[in-house]
Amino acid sequence: MLFEYTRHRGALSPVTDAATFKVGRIRQSATSETPTVDFSHLIDRSYNYHSPRELRWHLAERLGLAPTALALREACHA
């Protein structure tokens, strides 16, 4: 399953001092057989994610899937 997300600037992590990001929207990418589906309601959009990998793990947990069953990409801003 491929998901696209939009990223918003977060804050610096108090633990790692690294930049974080918040997710504006996350959607399952459309295929010829399925329409685009918004999954934004499944994640905490106020949470400061440290990496796309962490976001993938959180989404997989919500969907009851293995993280390897999901792929993420950042949506292009047009």
Rank of each mutant, 00 (worst) to 15 (best):
S40V: 05
L72T: 11
R27H: 01
G64H: 03
L65V: 07
R62Y: 01
F21K: 07
S46K: 14
E33S: 14
P67I: 12
D17A: 11
W57M: 15
R25Y: 01
Y47S: 01
E4Q: 10
Y49T: 09
L59H: 00
H50Q: 12
M1P: 12
D17N: 10
T20Y: 02
R25I: 08
I26Y: 00
S40E: 00
Y5G: 14
H58N: 09
P35G: 06
H41Q: 10
D17I: 09
P14Y: 02
E4N: 02
R25E: 05
E61Y: 06
L42K: 13
A78R: 14
H77N: 13
F21E: 00
R73Q: 15
E74H: 06
L72E: 04
Q28L: 15
L12Q: 06
Q28T: 02
T6M: 06
E4T: 11
G24M: 01
H50L: 08
R62N: 04
T36F: 02
E61P: 04
L2P: 01
S40P: 03
E33P: 00
L2Y: 05
S29H: 05
E61G: 10
D38T: 06
G10A: 04
L2H: 07
R73P: 00
G24P: 08
M1G: 11
G64S: 05
P35V: 03
A69N: 11
E54W: 09
T36I: 12
Y5M: 07
L2W: 13
P52H: 06
L63I: 05
K22I: 11
E74T: 13
R27C: 12
E61H: 11
E33W: 02
R56S: 08
D17W: 12
